[in-house]
Design a protein around this nucleic acid. Structure first.
Length: 465
RNA sequence: GGCGGAGUAGCCAAGUGGUAAGGCAAUGGUUUGCAAAACCGUCAUUCGAGGGUUCGAUUCCCUCCUCCGCCUCCA
């Protein structure tokens, strides 16, 4: 497959460096609260990338870290009256539940920062030895940007911008840490009173690792000097990924990531998502409004990853309808498919265009469109052809990580006795052709939130949204 | 101010130097006591605005407008 690379700004074929396994790293969540749908846009697209590679026959090694020590985790664990470990473990577990609901494959390795302190210290030592880092009087260690000429290539910052950043920042944080240059960033933070119990010994005194360094050290640990792809939300391009490149290439001497994959942020109702605007949604928030995580996933893959996605509650309703339509079409195809057909072909049949879209810079909306047109084209197929088409359809859905809704069973919803009686009375009135009575009873059921659908010989009740 | 991205039907959203995928909604028909559901149709001479290049531009170039992101630890 081909994918746009942030660093070279070109589309490139994704081929494993080692010729066998595509090894990639994704910046994971900072576990100090529930992940929101913006976080999940990134994780879902990374998941689709992996699934597409695997569906195409490429083996993968997927690593996604957990940031379990930083300013926010420390601050919020303290106000929660918990140890950092208790606090981050709790949120990590909740994150995993959400991941499963939204259909994310588990990463092959999910390292946490706190478990890799020695590796981080070792990397800092190497940087100090090579003259890329220096300690300050307060026990912090900084990376010396001027020692790495390649700094700014990923985010296209030139020296002038760095200087501007320097002066802009001079006022706000001049009393925080000592630095030779204000654009140098911290590798190790000297222990401060507000860190409480959260500090570790190091050659520079007690303290804790800087955020940027975590990823570099864990990548070194599990992927070595060079690997295939590094990914995260666009906001991480600068400074996080820029700093990782500097740290890792200076410490290890490799080429670090061969490819960079950044996912654009989503908008909510056309604007930025934020707590203060009341439009920051978590999966739990949306579940309360009656939307499943899989419906959220459908919306999240409904726009190209390099374009802003405007998330609305209406689009979630649309996702529900669209998925129901897919499920129905799939059932119809399955009913006509020859069950004896053994599939050996890697062909996608009517869904080839959808598969091609996915492989062309991960064009998920194009793939979804291709699925619908493929389904239309497959409508008249029968026997072995229908079976082959169904197989292509299923492979595509797996690549997208979509699980379609099952047929809702008769007793899927608990129906209160009073409602059941009302519905039964209405049915009898209807059989007696007492339309007026029937309509009154239906209005009452509607008022109570129930939708009646009349069939030929019976009726169904559905909970209205 | 610097850098990067986006503006396509009511909404979400692909795409392309050769005349606009798909989904939702809406709407017409069939069906239904009426609805709902289902099925069959319809639904952008037009792609933020104005110039330019071209046989031809939504697609390339220029200007402008609007929106969004980053500019030191936010996916």
């Amino acid at each position: 497959m081909r994918l746009f690379d942030t660093l070279s700004r070109t589309e490139r074929e994704l081929l494993p460096i080692d010729g066998s396994t595509y090894r990639f790293y994704c910046c994971g969540p900072t576990v100090y609260g529930p992940a929101h749908i913006g976080n999940f846009r990134t994780f879902v697209l990374q998941d689709v990338l992996r699934r597409t590679l695997e569906t195409g026959g490429t083996r993968t090694l997927h690593i996604r870290n957990i940031t379990d020590v930083d300013d926010k985790t420390i601050r919020d664990s303290q106000s929660a009256g918990q140890s950092l470990k208790q606090f981050t473990t709790g949120w990590t577990e909740k994150f995993h539940v959400d991941c499963e609901k939204i259909g994310l494959l588990e990463p092959h390795i999910e390292p946490g920062a706190v478990d890799h302190i020695p590796q981080q210290i070792a990397m800092i030592q190497k940087l100090v030895e090579k003259g890329h880092a220096y300690a300050s009087d307060d026990g912090s260690v900084y990376f010396k940007i001027s020692s790495f000429p390649g700094y700014g290539r990923l985010s296209r910052l030139d020296q002038r911008e760095l200087e501007i950043g320097k002066t802009q920042n001079a006022r706000s944080s001049s009393d925080e840490y000592e630095k030779d240059s204000l654009s140098d960033f911290v590798l190790w933070k000297g222990r401060r009173a507000e860190d409480g119990e959260n500090f570790w010994p190091s050659p520079w005194g007690e303290g804790r690792p800087g955020w940027h360094l975590e990823c570099s050290a864990m990548i070194q640990e599990y992927l070595g000097d060079s690997f295939d792809l590094h990914s995260g939300g666009v906001d991480l391009v600068f400074p996080h990924h820029e700093n990782e490149i500097a740290q890792s290439e200076c410490a290890c001497g490799g080429h670090f990531a061969a490819q960079w994959f950044h996912i654009t942020h989503l908008l909510v109702d056309g604007g930025k998502m934020s707590k203060s605007l009341g439009n920051l949604y978590t999966l739990a928030d949306l579940a309360e409004r009656g939307f499943s995580a899989m419906e959220v996933r459908y919306v999240l893959i409904g726009a190209h990853y390099r374009k802003p996605l405007n998330f609305t509650l209406d689009s979630l309703s649309g996702a529900r309808e669209a998925m129901a339509k897919l499920a129905k079409a799939a059932r119809q195809l399955a009913a006509k498919a020859d069950p004896e057909t053994r599939l050996v072909s890697a062909d996608f049949g009517p869904f080839q265009a959808a598969w091609d879209s996915l492989n062309n810079d991960l064009n998920t909306p194009g793939a979804l469109g291709g699925i619908f047109t493929g389904l239309r084209d497959a409508a008249n197929l029968t026997g072995p052809e229908a079976a082959a088409a169904l197989a292509g359809f299923n492979r595509l859905l797996r690549a997208l990580g979509l699980t379609l809704p099952e047929e809702i069973g008769q007793d899927a919803v608990e129906i209160p006795e009073s409602v059941r009686l009302l519905a039964e009375a209405r049915w009898q009135a209807r059989l007696a052709k007492n339309w007026a009575e029937s309509d009154v009873l239906r209005a009452e059921l509607t008022r109570q939130g129930w939708l009646v659908k009349d069939g030929k010989d019976s009726y169904t009740l559905e909970l209205n949204d």
